[in-house]
């Protein structure tokens, strides 16, 4: 019973931290557009927080550069459990066009575990909302998905459970 209540609260109140790991700023602007009045993420209980200590979800945009790698790990470790990482944009998912570049590690999953991938260049606000809502659905009802341990993927060929 208590577990159910806690799970309900967790799904209804995801606070996000926005972290640019080396993006060209396009995905960042789309994330901000999703948070602004037009798309109004607060109706799902999403609030933008300034500090990793308050956040449940990190929205990472951009490929992980060598420069940002240590900082990303540090931010990740500063977050209290349970925590979820969402990779926003093609670069964050796989490294995109920067994959293999001398200063780039790769996608976010090269450094920290990712819970949801949202591709797009840049990912549209609708796609970001879709990704976050699917992630919450998966936290809420993992049995509805074929591979509950696998991360959520939006629009990909191996989209599961839909």
């Amino acid at each position: 019973m208590l577990e159910k209540v806690v799970k309900w609260a967790r799904v209804k109140s995801p606070w996000v931290l926005h972290f640019n790991t080396g993006a060209c700023n396009a995905c960042d602007i789309e994330i901000l557009a999703a948070l602004a009045p037009r798309f109004d993420l607060e109706r799902f209980g999403v609030q933008l927080k300034g500090t990793p200590r308050h956040a449940d979800v990190i929205l990472c945009s951009g490929p992980v550069t060598r420069q940002i790698k240590d900082r990303l790990v540090r931010i990740y470790e500063q977050m209290p459990e349970p925590k979820f990482i969402v990779a926003v944009g093609t670069c964050a998912c796989s490294g995109g066009v920067f994959d293999g570049c001398y200063n780039v590690e790769g996608g976010i999953d090269s450094t920290i575990p990712v819970a949801a991938y949202i591709p797009g260049c840049p990912a549209r606000p609708e796609a970001i909302i879709d990704g976050v809502v699917k992630l919450l659905e998966k936290i809420d009802q993992p049995e509805k998905f074929q591979e509950p341990e696998q991360p959520v993927m939006i629009g990909g060929a191996n989209l599961d459970g839909q």
Partner: peptide
């Protein structure tokens, strides 16, 4: 905007407790 549903503060509080 539409704004948060009526149970939002409770959900925030329970989530923070957990």
């Amino acid at each position: 905007r539409l704004g948060p549903p009526w149970f939002q503060p409770e959900a925030d509080f329970i989530k923070l407790l957990s």
